[in-house]
Each structure stands twice: as structure tokens, then as C-alpha cells.
Design a protein around this nucleic acid. Structure first.
Lengths: 228, 228
DNA sequence: GAGTAATCGAACCGACGGGTTCGAAATAAA
DNA sequence: TTTATTTCGAACCCGTCGGTTCGATTACTC
């Protein structure tokens, strides 16, 4: 998911020390990243409303004029931050799902990675901020959810369907619902305490594993009679 | 839970039309409720930051001076709104848990009531707002969670322990964890889409019942071997 | 009806918000 | 070096915010 948590890669390639011409105003990818990084830090620290453009100016080490050359306004800047990142977690999830191992193990590793990521400090902070601006930027929140949180279950759903097609699982009535159930079950009792700040730090790896193991057991007990 | 959604009862009793003396400044419970009601509507409509004290003044039909006689500042006012309400949902949940019926039915009704409430528009909006101010009012968010969202699972946990004590269920290792699992499982695949605005309206009763039924089935399949 | 106290309402305060402007400085191409 | 252009940085604009003040008004008590 877009977790607002990791540094960005500069897709256009950071211009190799004076080869091409000077970038046009508002088109230097390095400076753009510089702004995004600074803004990212500020937003993460203070949330959307409490962050001022002056704060971002300072943090990014860029003048206000330049800032507004690169981004039309505060909302645009925030949206750019949200959309910048397709978290690397999905790469890992895909690897797990591609391994040819017993279903229980795959589910366990998948659930652990998924849960660990979604409950991490950066991911939680990102989710809070997006939830906080939902009234003003509903489409952004929707995108954040679709290209973020929801991607894990979608991947799992595809995986399950493939298993069915290969005859390793008996047919599933509603695989997407099942996948969501599994994802949420892995985080059961952890997600909302984290989101509401009741649980100040991410759960320990042991705590997560225990939760996931319980989820896998319950899950296979309920649905797993036909497979692996 | 404190859902920010229902009208308040005036605990001190709305003074019966000129019986006692005139209330001292900032101590008229009727006016206090009037302010809270107006502020409640404004906050629900616009969120914390976007709501101004002037808006609240207008909505509550009260002067700004009076407003500040009753509440020291905006945060206090907001906190008062959050803490005012112990939602009536818990009454209903308790009734359900007290009925002497098959475990599956009790779980079904409990899960349905719990899920329906937590996914309602008012409850979701309340949760979003609280999440949005977590950085500034962490203890408030914590209270909101403890006296709200979390109360359902706590009640269920007590119920399960009682069932065990009566010999109707085999002993449960970690009943609180189980209860949380069940609550979250009932909302699996629904809660986050609602919270992130991806699902614009509350799920239909059928949708919720389907989810809860699936949760109950899974749950009893995993843990129910000893009981009822 | 006189007196007292709560409320009103509108003006006011200082701070800060997002956003703009503009001349000076820096940097690169020519 | 000249020229073109991006960036800087600080001042500035204007609106709004939370919060205060204060005289006018209302409503109650005696």
C-alpha cells in the first residue's frame, strides 16, 4: 500500500551532474523529489491541517516561490506524496505467493508480511492523515485505499483462484470476500487499537505471528478441508 | 461506543420551566446541551479543523461570549462532545448476551448489532474525526476507543467466560483475543472500505448478515467444537 | 418596579494561514 | 562575458482563525 513511509526512487533518473541542459522551471526531478521528501516529513509529523506551507518550505530547503512553481497548492502537493509511492511491500507479497509451498505456510508468511506492514508506524500515520482529509479529498482517499490497503487481499484472491484452477483447492464461492476476511483476521484485535493510538507502538513480531497463526488455523479449519 | 451520533439526554434534568433560580453563568444545563448539540452537528459535518467557533456559534444559536463561558476552548468543547455519549448500542448488546439461546444465534445477533452500529454513517464519521485529531488529543482518542469501539468485545469476552464457567463451552485460552477476533471478523472486508470512504454508504442489512453469518460459521468451526 | 446577573452581539485583537510578487542572486548556455 | 532563466527570500495580501472585550439587552429575584 501507499504507506507514506519509504524514500522515493526518482523515476526519471537523477540528472547525471550537468549533462543535459538546465531543467525548465518546475521540471527538475531532483528538486521535485527534494520538495516531496521535505513535505512528506512535515505531513507525517503534523498531519495535513497543522502543516503549513512555510513549514514545508523550511524542511525542504526550498523557497516558497519555487514550491509553488512545482505544485499548484497544498492539496496537490499532498496528493503527489500519496500517489508517489507504490510500496515495496507488494513485491514481497508477490514473492511469497509465488513460492510453491504448503498452503498453511504461504498464508502464514503472507499474513505476517501484510500485517506487519499495515501496522507499522509509518503506514498507520499515513492512514490516519488520509482519513483525516477524507471530506476534502474523497477521491484521494479512495485511490489510497484501492492502490494501497486493498491490494494485499486482491493479490491473495488471485492466488486462491489460481490454486482452485490447479485443483489444489476446492472451489471457493466468493474468493475476494474470503481474502478480505483473511487479511482482516490477521490484524484482528490489533488494527483499531493501533489506528486509535491505544497501542502506541507496533506489536512485536511474536505478537503478530501469534495473531496470524491463529488466523491461519481458524481459516483452514473453516475453509481448508479441500486443499494443499 | 461513543458514536457521536445520537441526541443527548440531559442528565441533570432540564429545569422544569422556572422552578429553581436562574442558573449561574455557564451552568445552565439546557444551554449547555444546546451548545453541545450545535457543535456536534458542525463537527460532524466538517471535521475538527474545518469547523470554526463562529460556525458553532451560529449553529447553536448562542453568542460567542456565552460559548466561551461554557467551554474554555475548542478542544474542550470537542472533548465534551466525545465524552457526553455512552451510546445506547451497549444496552442492546447486553440484552442479546443475556438471552438464553444457542451460541450460534447469540453470536449472530451480537455480531449483527455490533457491526451495523460501527459501520453506520454517524459512527464512521465520529471515528474519522477522532482519528484526525489523534496527534493533538491522543488521550481523547484513547478514551474514545476504550469506552467505545472496544466495549463490544469486552462484553463478549465476559459472556464467553461465563459460558465456560457454566460448562457450556470448553475452556478458552485467551477469551479477549477471541472476542476481538470475532468482532473484527464480523466486519471483515467492510470496516476499512467504510472508513476510507471507498464504500459511501453503510452496507445493507443483508450484506452485513451475510458477513456475520460467515464469521459465525468460521468461528464455530474453529472454536466451537466443545460447546453450546 | 428596582436591582442584579446572564446573555447577546458586534467589534476587535494578534497570529497565522495559503498564496503572490519582485528584485537580487545564482547558474548555465552562448 | 554576456545573456537568459531558474531560484531565492523576504515582504506583502487578504482572509480567517481562536479568543477577548464591553456596552446593550434580556430575564429573573426581591
Amino acid at each position: 500500500m501507499s504507506d507514506l513511509g519509504e524514500a522515493a526512487d526518482i523515476e526519471d533518473g537523477k540528472r547525471p551532474e550537468g549533462c543535459g541542459g538546465r531543467p525548465a522551471a518546475g521540471e527538475d526531478p531532483v528538486k521535485r523529489e527534494q520538495i516531496l521528501d521535505g513535505a512528506h516529513r512535515v505531513f507525517m509529523r503534523m498531519g495535513f491541517d497543522a502543516s503549513s506551507m512555510n513549514d514545508i518550505t523550511r524542511e525542504a530547503g526550498v523557497s516558497k516561490g519555487t514550491l509553488y512553481v512545482y505544485f499548484r497548492n497544498k492539496e496537490d502537493l499532498f496528493a503527489a506524496i500519496i500517489q508517489r509511492q507504490k510500496s515495496k511491500i507488494f513485491e514481497k507479497l508477490r514473492e511469497i505467493l509465488e513460492e510453491d509451498r504448503p498452503l498453511a505456510e504461504v498464508l502464514h508468511d503472507f499474513g505476517t508480511a501484510f500485517t506487519t506492514h499495515l501496522l507499522s508506524e509509518t503506514a498507520i500515520r499515513g492512514q490516519r492523515i488520509v482519513i483525516g482529509v477524507i471530506d476534502r479529498m474523497p477521491e484521494l482517499a479512495s485511490t489510497f485505499f484501492q492502490t494501497g490497503t486493498n491490494t494485499g487481499p486482491v493479490m491473495l484472491c488471485n492466488f486462491l483462484e489460481k490454486q482452485v484452477a490447479r485443483g489444489r483447492l476446492k472451489p471457493i464461492e466468493d474468493p475476494m470476500m474470503i481474502s478480505r476476511q483473511f487479511g482482516d483476521l490477521c490484524m484482528a484485535g490489533l488494527y483499531r487499537p493501533r489506528l486509535f493510538g491505544e497501542m502506541r507502538e507496533p506489536p512485536s513480531a511474536e505478537r503478530i505471528e501469534k495473531n496470524v497463526a491463529s488466523a491461519v488455523r481458524l481459516f483452514l479449519g473453516g475453509y481448508g478441508a479441500g486443499g494443499a
